[in-house]
Design a protein around this nucleic acid. Structure first.
Lengths: 223, 223
DNA sequence: CAGCATATGATTACGCCGTAAACTCGTCAA
DNA sequence: TTGACGAGTTTACGGCGTAATCATATGCTG
């Protein structure tokens, strides 16, 4: 048992422990208080030690976003799509309320991690079970996303980089489909029509806007 | 003409020139490149000189948000409320596209400046002209805001501070009403019922969410 | 067991950040 | 002429992210 006896007094750092501490620090002291040095301090370690487990601070931000996204309960698929969607949205909102720094970080961070993809996949799955064709599910994803997370983020938005050609886009779609079937289907559809693997933000925006305006119109008429 | 001859070669700094340069810098180099030193450099001045015209960097952030909010064209009030609202939303979105850093800054900045208030007032004005009762106009403001700006922000949200008592809340509402009549009406209404001068975020969220879900439901049925 | 590779954390250092405080200097009123 | 003042400069401090280097403990190989 020599290794047990000589175990260091503090648990060894891991990426998970670092991210957990980062979420904690952001929750309790605000996202601006999240610095490498303070984070290390909370873990009983010098700030530079964190770089053994994390590429840089950006990776921490991506990591904590993904960490809290995975806090969102996956929906039980009872009931119709609408109640399932409502449940999932409220669950997501609950998490955002628990971590008030999250929307601002998400807005500033275009990277999409696995937990976010899983969430998007769940949303698309619910919508498709409700009979939504893929393009409308895409619209719905955006308008719901802006409501829940205060932003719109596309799972395969390469607007900043060069656009992949059709072949590599299809390959990416296939890779996605392996882990996230519904996201994969969406990527596939986007690859086929003129979408070029992205989505037309203007169309997206107008769809959500008109959805809201029509909804308001109907409610004011009901009165 | 001695003063003309001895006029300094560079125009004197003003708060307006500082904010204008700040917007420019954020537009061209990204919001992260907006530092006091670089901003001063762009104006041909040491960074510290800016503090004569601006309290601190936070004031600059508030200032540039207000500056771009005032870029949003005020709507011409022709047509029905819905087309007016649509026009205004698209105008706001155009400004956000011109300044891609804006949503992230807005999300992180709870202060509401005069130009933002003016915009909110315009939104409420359109809605009231469309027959919206004040509480529904309030809901609509939030759900539209989250669509256009990627966030929800309340003009009189003191949740962090102590809540003002009814008398001071009413006084604040009156002060607002002087410059922003529609906002003032809203504040007034919020003061009366159980609102305590704020708004119930949960109710707000559910309203917008159900509006969207119902709208989606209708569109998928139409197919 | 000896010796060494590897992994983990500590130290030091650099340049950038926001900003407090003191300073310089040109302008203008008395 | 003088003295106050306004605007910009200089210097300085602590905090930030992180590159590079060092120290040490662990575990594997012979």
């Amino acid at each position: 048992m020599t290794e047990t006896a000589s175990t260091p007094l503090r648990a060894p750092l891991t990426k998970e422990r670092v991210l957990e501490a980062a979420v904690d620090l952001a929750d309790h002291a605000g996202i601006n208080a999240l610095s490498m040095r303070k984070l290390g301090q909370g873990l009983g370690v010098e700030g530079m030690a964190l770089y053994r487990h994390v590429r840089d601070k950006e990776a921490i931000l991506d990591g904590i976003v993904d960490a809290i996204m995975s806090e969102i309960d996956l929906p039980d698929r009872t009931g119709d799509w609408k109640t399932a969607m409502r449940r999932l949205s409220l669950a997501a909102r609950e998490v955002m309320l628990r971590h008030p720094w999250a929307p601002a970080v998400i807005v500033a961070r275009p990277e999409v991690g696995p937990a976010t993809l899983r969430h998007i996949d769940a949303v698309l799955g619910i919508l498709q079970s409700g009979g939504f064709p893929i393009d409308m599910a895409h619209h719905a994803l955006h308008v719901l996303g802006s409501r829940v997370f205060g932003f719109t983020q596309d799972p395969f938005n390469d607007t900043n980089d060069v656009r992949p050609d059709a072949a590599t886009a299809a390959a990416m779609a296939n890779a996605l489909a392996a882990s996230y079937p519904n996201v994969g289907r969406l990527a596939m559809a986007a690859t086929h029509d003129g979408g070029l693997g992205g989505c037309d933000d203007d169309v997206e925006f107008a769809f959500g806007l008109d959805l809201i305006l029509d909804g308001l119109d109907r409610r004011v008429d009901e009165r």
